[in-house]
Design a binder for these strands. Sequence first.
DNA 1: TAGATATTTAGACAAATATCTAATTATTAT
DNA 2: ATAATAATTAGATATTTGTCTAAATATCTA
Lengths: 86, 86
Amino acid sequence: MNIFFKALNDPTRREILELLNKGDLTAGEIADCFSMTKPSISHHLDLLRQADLVVSIREGQYIKYSINTTVFDGVVVWLMQFKKST
Amino acid sequence: MNIFFKALNDPTRREILELLNKGDLTAGEIADCFSMTKPSISHHLDLLRQADLVVSIREGQYIKYSINTTVFDGVVVWLMQFKKST
DNA sequence: TAGATATTTAGACAAATATCTAATTATTAT
DNA sequence: ATAATAATTAGATATTTGTCTAAATATCTA
């Protein structure tokens, strides 16, 4: 839970997730969507990967990133606990 | 969204929410549940209040805190966007 | 093999964060 | 009024975080 909220506690990383939700992208394509250096984006991708929110596979010269939505289930359950008691 | 994830990006604050989900508590009662000074807890409560996740009202000498679960709705919607496409 | 492209890693640095102690404000009760 | 209790605010400090530049790694192509 910790690493998840840490990963989501940044607007750039949340935007990356929204981008990947529309389709897979390479690291470079993701970086092109932001006014930030590639190393910075790479670092954000690393945090998202640590939280298991994205998966990466090398495709030749490129590294392609995909969103992993299964992680959200646990968090939604955690959030829903607060709505039960109504 | 920013302030919400910021507020939730701390285990102590998440635990405070879980406590308040069982019932209202005063600042002191909350602090007693943690091995941390009262000023530190007060600071966490302040962040939770900024995120509108808790509400506080003074009751005489005490200040009572309640959880505000309405905020979760928006976040669950945000999280659910990632599950739609399945 | 050399050079070009894609990406990450390393190291530095400023800004944000979590925590503490000490001081302040607010309320109650003697 | 004074003292006691509840809670916050202020200020200090160590740690974490986001960003950058420079360097390193990996792949492709001529």
